[in-house]
């Protein structure tokens, strides 16, 4: 463990990446504490509410930070989250202007529906960090399995090799549509699945190449000469080597999947509204005259996430490299 960690931290910035990623995960987990339309804690009319932003009590169903603040009694108090707006509330506080530039009310301005950009940015972390790992998990499984099967025998290779090539050339947009069509509506899972279905062939190709290389290596040939079954060879000799390629790909893959999700949502084929996604903010930036406060924050958020994932990926690669 400690040797792995040492090797991991040898990669430049790997620890920084891990810290960044940790921060982002924390932000995603505690998004409701960072940006919510309900307070962290409040005392309203002799009632004490703890974390109503998470528990969402029925008594406050039609309230938000602004309306509560307006009707505070003499002994009441309210502790609002750093960003006192939810990601879905349109025109919180009764302001009807849309596309407000950053101000003391809305630190990052509002979008074209009068929603707070900072709140949507924070909650967008959830989408990015849900879709990325989901997509990677699916294609890791698929890619490794198919890549390994290719290495096992010529017939398998012939058929699956073709499948890989078909997958490699398949247009992403149709896949997404077909997947959307099979269920009633677009959802996060389908976006993840679509990304996975377009990415697995790339991984399968890598695994296959690695596996073929390993199969041709002297120690595998020796094992086969000694009568080891192909499955055993694949599991004992090939998989460990191939899995390092897979793990490295996975670490980098999360960042790529986040970029992918951004692109899909930007084109209008990604996560459905009103979910707060960074790609959606970008498409709003396009549709509303390239307002800088809609363009810059999601770009920075995406870049930070991708950089963090790639830095961690570098570390993982270093960690898995054969010492020496």
């Amino acid at each position: 463990m400690s040797r792995s960690w040492k090797r991991f931290s040898q990669a430049r910035g790997a620890r920084l990446g891990l810290a960044l990623l940790g921060g982002l995960i924390a932000l995603a987990l505690f998004a409701d504490l960072a940006a919510s339309d309900l307070p962290l804690a409040a005392r309203v009319g002799a009632h004490l509410y703890l974390l109503p932003c998470v528990t969402r009590p029925a008594a406050l169903a039609s309230d938000d930070n602004q309306s509560l603040a307006a009707r505070l009694g003499p002994h009441d108090w309210l502790l609002a989250p750093p960003v006192p707006y939810g990601p879905y509330a349109q025109h919180p506080g009764g302001i009807t202007r849309v596309l407000d530039p950053p101000s003391h009310r809305h630190l990052l301005g509002t979008d074209d529906r009068g929603r707070d950009v900072a709140a949507r940015l924070i909650h967008g972390t959830r989408i990015a960090l849900a879709v990325g790992p989901l997509a990677v998990a699916i294609y890791l499984l698929l890619g490794t399995l198919i890549g390994l099967l290719c290495a096992l025998g010529r017939t398998g290779d012939l058929v699956l090799g073709r499948a890989i090539e078909i997958g490699l050339t398949f247009p992403t947009l149709f896949l997404l549509l077909a997947i959307q069509g099979m269920s009633a509506t677009a959802s996060l899972f389908e976006v993840g699945l679509a990304i996975a279905l377009t990415e697995w062939p790339h991984l399968a190709r890598l695994v296959r190449a690695d596996a073929l290389k390993t199969m041709a290596s002297p120690h595998v040939e020796a094992a086969r000469a000694m009568g080891a079954s192909p499955v055993r060879v694949a599991l004992v000799h090939v998989l460990p080597l191939a899995s390092s390629a897979a793990l490295t790909t996975a670490a980098f893959g999360v960042g790529q999947a986040v970029l992918f999700e951004t692109a899909l949502t930007f084109l209008g084929f990604g996560v459905p509204p009103p979910l707060a996604s960074w790609g959606e903010l970008l498409s709003q930036a396009q549709a509303s005259g390239l307002e800088p406060w809609l363009l810059v924050p999601p770009t920075v958020a995406i870049a930070l996430t991708v950089i963090a994932c790639n830095l961690v990926g570098d570390g993982v690669r270093k960690m898995l490299e054969e010492p020496g």
Partner: peptide
Amino acid sequence: YCLYALPTAAVGL
């Protein structure tokens, strides 16, 4: 490294 992490759409916009 940072450039690599930018979404194409954002760069274009």
